[in-house]
Simulated assay, not measured.
Amino acid sequence: MQGAKETDPAAIKDAIRAKAIELGFGTVGFATAKADTSTKQHLADFLAEGQQGDMGWMQETFERRADPRTLWPEARSIVALGMNYGPGHDPLALLDRPDRGIVSVYAQGKDYHDVVKSRLKQLGGWIHRSYGCELKVFVDTAPVMEKPAAEKAGIGWQGKHTNLVSRRFGSWLFLGEIFTTLDLPPDESETDHCGACRRCLDACPTKAFPAPYRLDARRCISYLTIEHKGPIPRAFRRAMGNRIYGCDDCLAVCPWNKFASRTAEFAFQPRAELTAPRLADLADLDDSAFRALFSGSPIKRVGRDRFVRNVLVALGNSSDSGQAERIEALLDDAAPLVRGAAVWALAQLADPARFEELRAHHLRNEADSEVRQEWQAN
């Protein structure tokens, strides 16, 4: 029996799948570690059009990202895995609460990178001990085309919003991969079940989808609030509303979510302080308070300055003139990024005479060119 377990590919797949489910993964599939010509071309077109924005690492890692065997030549198979992070609430419910900030569902619990990678290592260790193969584990930060790999492995398909959709979990899956030297037969790839639906495309506040299955990251609120390092472009500030970290609009409206279930993973349960945080409290965060509040959270990686920039844009959209004094205090913040966002937010809320008084004063004393431009533009 032991020999059959070690040599029969179908039995090995069944055993890996069972162990993965035991460790908390919701779905498992298998794919070959071969480059896909159409996927590589799609990525090349995306980069050629500059739609990656500030994410220069995508261009730098293009060859490794496009071909798994460039990343690791010994790889023969990919074990693609998904962990359910389905919410137990409507992710869009806070859109009509302008005094509160919206944090993307995926970031309301513990950092999924740590959780998924820990489980991948447990599974990888078991596979290595059981079958004597070599392997590498990846989750998000490595140059791996996760969604195409997951589609090839049959655990979902890339929807029109470019994210993975599962018939069982909707749009709520964290992905991870194990590259292995085991030569395992691939599962049947998943087919597209979007049909004529375009709810995700129509829901996007910034019209970030130039066409179905194409995303211009430079217009995406998730990109703007997380990856983008400079001021939020003026054209998208109003559309951001009160979204302060990420955006779930295109995910939340997917009809396949009717089959989704709330995650049972404790680490992904939302922290109370992130389900409906008061913008006023978040605007007051200094660096140490920011680090303390977001310890163990993916939000921590954007840093205090970018986060408070996002909060200030949301405050500017709140129509709450009572926040003007709080925003005024940030006009002298040490970070130009925060000062510039404070200028715009104050322009939306302050008494015009008071704003002109502040403009005259700060234009005389502001050294940063981008902040000066904000004063001049408002």
Rank of each mutant, 00 (worst) to 15 (best):
A4F: 09
D8C: 10
A11Y: 05
D14W: 04
K34Y: 08
A48G: 09
M55W: 08
F62L: 10
T70I: 15
W72K: 12
A75S: 15
A75C: 11
R76M: 14
R76Q: 15
S77R: 12
H89T: 13
P91E: 11
L92S: 01
P98C: 12
I102D: 05
V103I: 15
V103Q: 05
A107T: 10
Y112V: 02
Y112W: 14
K117W: 13
S118V: 02
S118Q: 14
E134W: 03
L135H: 14
D140K: 14
K147I: 14
A149G: 01
A150D: 03
I155C: 14
G156A: 07
Q158C: 12
G159E: 02
K160H: 11
L164P: 14
R167K: 09
W172H: 06
F179K: 02
F179Y: 15
T181Y: 04
D183Q: 05
D183Y: 04
S189I: 02
T191A: 13
P205A: 13
A208W: 05
F209S: 06
Y213H: 13
A217G: 09
C220G: 01
S222W: 00
L224Q: 09
K229V: 03
P233R: 06
R234M: 09
R234V: 14
G241F: 00
N242A: 00
D249K: 00
C254H: 01
N257D: 03
N257S: 06
K258C: 02
A267I: 05
P270F: 10
L274R: 15
R278H: 12
D284S: 11
L285G: 00
D287M: 01
L293V: 02
S295T: 06
G296Q: 13
V302A: 08
R304C: 07
N310S: 06
G316P: 02
N317C: 04
A329V: 08
A329I: 07
A334P: 00
A335I: 01
R339E: 01
G340W: 04
A347R: 05
L358W: 07
R359D: 11
H362T: 04
H362M: 06
R364Y: 10
